[in-house]
């Protein structure tokens, strides 16, 4: 039996949380199904806005997960980026779709693990830099010539627990 996705639902109206969803229940309480989509999406347009408010409540997903299909979560384990606010235990919110520019904090598969570093591009020089007070102990990774740097995603937010 095919599964149907409700039509007329713009992609940014579908709120998908990162983990099994815990939607705040919209006031109209209707289940969005094809049969009532016209009404439901009209209601949704009215209730959503782009400032992270959903049904009168702040919604962290709206604010920090701007594009659910391309958003991934990885916890930080190393300490090489503590000056950038990424500590061991920080939850990094990663957008796989974002453009990586010089200055972006990027996630890269390096050797046999994921690393998080500041991307530095100037002319032909491409580096991944750490941000740590003892920077000498964290030398940059240089990419030159035919080296390939595949960026997995760009870190957009870091969540710390105190």
């Amino acid at each position: 039996m095919p599964i149907i996705v409700s039509p007329n639902l713009p992609v940014n109206a579908v709120r998908v949380s990162l983990h099994p969803p815990h939607f705040s229940l919209p006031l109209y309480g209707g289940k969005v199904s094809a049969a009532q989509s016209r009404w439901a999406s009209a209601a949704q347009d009215y209730m959503d806005d782009d400032f992270g408010v959903l049904g009168g409540r702040l919604d962290l997903n709206v604010r920090f997960v701007t594009n659910p299909p391309s958003t991934f979560v990885m916890p930080v384990d190393g300490d090489s980026m503590i000056k950038a606010g990424l500590f061991p235990g920080t939850i990094a919110i990663i957008d796989k779709n974002a453009d990586a520019k010089s200055g972006s904090i990027v996630v890269v598969w390096y050797g046999d693990k994921y690393i998080v570093k500041r991307l530095y591009i100037k002319g032909n020089i491409v580096k991944l830099r750490s941000e740590h007070p003892k920077i000498r102990e964290y030398p940059p990774i240089l990419f030159k010539g035919d080296d390939e740097l595949v960026i997995w995603g760009v870190v957009k937010h870091g969540i710390n627990t105190y």
């Binding site: 983990h19 099994p20 991934f72 979560v73 990885m74 916890p75 930080v76 384990d77 190393g78 090489s80 990424l86 990094a92 996630v107 693990k113 994921y114 690393i115 998080v116």
Partner: peptide, 12 residues
């Protein structure tokens, strides 16, 4: 990788 806080990939 995407659905369990304890199994997410780690960043070094």
């Amino acid at each position: 990788y995407t659905g369990n806080w304890n199994e997410l990939p780690r960043l070094y």
